[in-house]
Amino acid sequence: MNVVYFAWVRERIGLPKEKLSTNAKTVMELVEELRAREERYAVAFSDLSALRVALDQELSDFDASLNGVTEVAFFPPMTGG
């Protein structure tokens, strides 16, 4: 599974993307796995209300299933326009 990060999430974790093998069934389970990996992940994922998630480039939510998903993206609320 490809996991990509944008804006300050990318800066805090220190990389724009990575390939992970995971057994996580939901976004939340993936977040828990990442948090447990290293301090920088725990910091980036400390406040989920400050984060958004996209599954295969569609906005989603943290309860969503990862079944069939190939790309997960984490980023702060968007500031377009």
Binding site: A7, W8, A73, P76, P77, M78, T79, G80, G81
Partner: peptide, 20 residues
Amino acid sequence: KSRAPFWKKEMTADGAEWVA
């Protein structure tokens, strides 16, 4: 503004800050 995945960062002489 809030559904297209763009993120703005402001750079000044004092540093850089993401726009909330």
